[in-house]
Amino acid sequence: MHYQFDFHVIFRYAPYLLAGVKVTFEVTLIAVSLGMVIGLLIAVLRLSRLRVLRIPAIVYLEVFRNTPALVLLIWLYYAIPIMTGLRLSALESVSFALAASAGANMAEIYRAGILSVNRGEVEAAKSLGLTGSQILRRIVLPQALRRMIPPFTNAFIAVVLLSSLVSVLGVPDLTYQAQNIAQLTFRPIEIFTAVAVVYMAISYALSFVAHRIEAWVSERT
């Protein structure tokens, strides 16, 4: 092994990598926040007593569970602007596609959380005269959300890591920048070592924050 490691390239190209980190953050932020909304919607539909509402949700979940994320990402990237008629930037398209995929994951987290709430409490709320949406907002979600913190943390981290797929579609995220720099410098090992460290740092930071939130929440109960 005569390979000479040269980590200086990382510093030379740091501005490009940082620009990539910024795009990764943007994509992740949109995908996570939108995914949480989509997930809640799908979960509520999935739990509906009405078949017409339940079946589309089941189809949605099954499609995402049984297809590779990359394939769906590419498909949605082209399909979302056509189906919605919106003129979207590449970044917006991939973010929405990633949100759709994350939403499927999160729907199952919401569903498990909602089902974990004692049925008796739901009936007690019903008996008091709370409407369905009031029960969800006042009784079910406050309890369910607390139990959802750990699985949601995992889901967020998954989105961060999956966001690297958007590089395939030419969105200049961290991975995309790294590929470019690697081709320019012929230093893929050094560049991708740095990139892996950055992804790890982001994921660890997320876990850390989640643990703090969890501790804070359980302290108050």
């Binding site: 004692n118 008796g120 409490e121 009936e123 007690a124 005269g129 309890q143």
Partner: peptide
Amino acid sequence: SERELARKRQHLSMVAQGFHLFSH
């Protein structure tokens, strides 16, 4: 409708075997 049911339930209040207090 669900809304009507919720309104009419206000005539009554149930105390159940398992208490079912809102635990949060």
